[in-house]
Nucleic acid binder design. Sequence first.
RNA 1: GGUCCCAUCGUCUAGCGGCCUAGGACACCGCCCUCUCACGGCGGAGACACGGGUUCGAUUCCCGUUGGGACUACCA
Length: 499
Amino acid sequence: MDAVRVRFAPSPTGYLHIGGARTALYDWLLARQTGGRFILRIEDTDRNRLVADAVQDIKDSLRWLGLDWDEGPDAGGEAGPYFQSERLAIYEKYATQLVQAGKAYYCFCTPERLEEMRKKQEQTGQPSGYDRHCRELPAEEVERKLAAGEKYVIRFKVPLAGQIKVRDELRGEMIFDHQTLDDFVVLKSDGFPTYHLASVVDDHLMGITHVIRGEEWIVSLPRHFLLYDAFGWAPPAFIHLPIFLAPDGKGKLSKRHGATGVREFREKGYLPEALVNFLLLLGWHPPTDEELFTLDQAVQAFSVDRLNTSPVNFSLDKLDWYNGIYIRKLSHEELAKRALPFLQKDGLLPDPCPPEQFAYLVRLMPLVQERIKLLSELPNAVGYFLRAEIDPPAPELLVGKKGTTEEVAAILRKVEVVLSQTADFSEENLELVLRGLAENLQLKPGQIFMPVRVAVTGQTATPGLFELLAALGKEKVLPRLKQAVMVLEKTGSGRASVN
RNA sequence: GGUCCCAUCGUCUAGCGGCCUAGGACACCGCCCUCUCACGGCGGAGACACGGGUUCGAUUCCCGUUGGGACUACCA
């Protein structure tokens, strides 16, 4: 077998979509495991829908995921250029070749006429498609119109009868009647090719052996096979991936269902390791029940024949689980590194971050590592460590459901006294001191731990109290205890109202 | 409307005729651990869309129905 050559061919009409990322992942996996080449080709043939920074986003996102390409933008390669907008002459050449061979023709129909035709078809319930108005135009009329500079497109001449047999590696053979196909455009009036022409020509010229793409292309497969036939080329292997459905299963995944761009996942605090693992298992299943894969492990395990064909509901629950798993796998140093941008964005740490403050951040990581699922939860999780002061906690939070304002105020005052006399702010000693205090006061540990927790963090769900106090340090703990006592004194007597 | 694809727990899926009283994971519920929250451990509930065939035997093969989806542009 020839060396595998696969391409990921996004259109820069938007940022890298999560579905595209999965396609790219499978492409990359197939290339890497066979020692083949992974090619990035930019299909920028639609000048109307072009998004300026889309190419940059696609490249950034691919790199962020760890999917490097061997040929394409920034990488070069023998088969370039890799932007279709730079290959216009090639498409024109092949389109004209088709015309000369009698397999395609010039069409001078105006958009208005086409629109009217469509309307009529819809009203009368006719199947849609071009009515072949220009298919049999006399040669001299074509010459005349061309000479007169009339706008034209080039359409492929689909056989009027018969069938075409196509093949998808996952679904096997499919047969389409030529009658159900219309004479599709291969070259647009602006001189740009349509997807059909461009992808077939490029895939052939670039020596692509496997085309992996979304299921939405399956209806176009017969057109592509027709084109390969017309040129006398052997088609590559086609693998159509099931599309991503909205989480509720109703319709294709789209922007209205939340994040769909890789960059959005990145901004929400997902790790590339998690996203890759999640995407890998969405449409592919290993021979075992293993669920955790690094990119390297996936290269070993991946195989095309274990790809699925049924549509996938894109539900995020499992991705969150994966993210938690991979966050917990990171070293404290690495976690801190990835956390930093999220903290800087919220102004909790300066940019650039001085080594001392970064070291403190690393010190905090073990306290929060197993409590977060997203990096974006970090500002809230470590904010009270990084801020000099916290807002005074609500009295109801301080008092809780069982105690009274006086009781809790008294407890906190005692804690403040005891801790101010404590020089050793180590986790172990803090535990000794506070448990001892609880014993002396004949209180259950929770009765004093919870108010202290709220007093120093403002939250009821936090890391363990002693590690928390140790990391906070005496100079932050004492003032916050005082502040809490003041809050309670101001609240007055009786039970604080509980909501 | 036409053409095409798909169909196992809520979700991702294993299953390629008997190993299935249908397995795993996420989510959910309960218990344990415990200073809260997590993490972790243990347990629970939860699916072969329906109807015909084929076969000694169908989740597995075939047909139909139903349901879902894609496409139907000088967009990809």
